[in-house]
């Protein structure tokens, strides 16, 4: 690679990719609900993006491209981590941590932190977090990040019909979770 090529890569990286970092971090945080995991995920996504920057077409949708890289990194990490069930009873977590040697149970510490953060977070964040990751992802991409169905379909590698049905179910589940809270704040949904 010549110096000029590296300069070009750096320029694209700085001007087109780095401005997306807040949105990317927000997405990563709502996928993992753990600041360290979100940091790792964003860093991994950016380093991969830099490595494969030649496949990015300048002036196209940098945000969607980065989100796709991050989503793939998340799925790979998630698969590695979830040999065990994703949800465990709190008592079970405490018992595991009372064992003399907990080196084999490192993934449980994330879960305990997730449970703690869930208790401390606000109602909406809790409700979104309670959605299964496949529903949470489409909701975040559409309602928080403002991606269109077609963009979400490309980011997640699923048909547009799947995006629409997941979004429909995610919103309905969220409405159920939030019904009482929303009504108490003056937002109403009387459809039942």
């Amino acid at each position: 690679m010549t110096v000029m090529e590296k300069n070009t890569k750096d320029k694209i990286f700085e001007e087109e990719l780095m401005p997306q970092i807040d949105a990317l971090y927000n997405f990563a945080y709502h996928l993992t609900y753990n600041e360290e995991d979100a940091n790792d995920l964003v860093q991994e996504a950016y380093l991969k993006a830099y490595r494969f920057i030649a496949s990015y077409e300048v002036g196209t949708n940098a945000k969607a491209w980065l989100f796709k890289i991050l989503k793939n990194a998340f799925i790979n990490n998630y698969r590695k981590k979830t040999k065990q069930p994703t949800r465990v009873d709190y008592e079970e977590v405490v018992n595991y941590h009372n064992e003399e040697d907990d080196t084999n149970y490192s993934s449980y510490s994330d879960m305990r932190e997730e449970i703690f953060q869930g208790m401390m977070g606000d109602e909406v964040t809790n409700a979104v977090n309670s959605l299964d990751v496949s529903f949470r992802t489409v909701l975040l991409l559409c309602d928080v990040e403002g991606f269109k169905y077609e963009e979400i379909s490309k980011i997640l590698d699923v048909p547009i019909g799947t995006v629409r049905s997941r979004l429909h179910r995610a919103r309905n589940m969220l409405k159920e979770h939030l019904k009482e809270y929303a009504e108490s704040k003056g937002f109403t949904d009387k459809r039942g």
Binding site: D22, E35, Q43, L47, D143, V144, K175
Partner: peptide, 20 residues
């Protein structure tokens, strides 16, 4: 003619610097 609910973390400067 006949008179829809749409629900924020910021990245740390350390992470930005680390990536750069």
């Amino acid at each position: 003619k006949n008179p829809e609910f749409r629900i924020r973390k910021k990245v740390s400067p350390n992470l930005v610097q680390s990536i750069k």
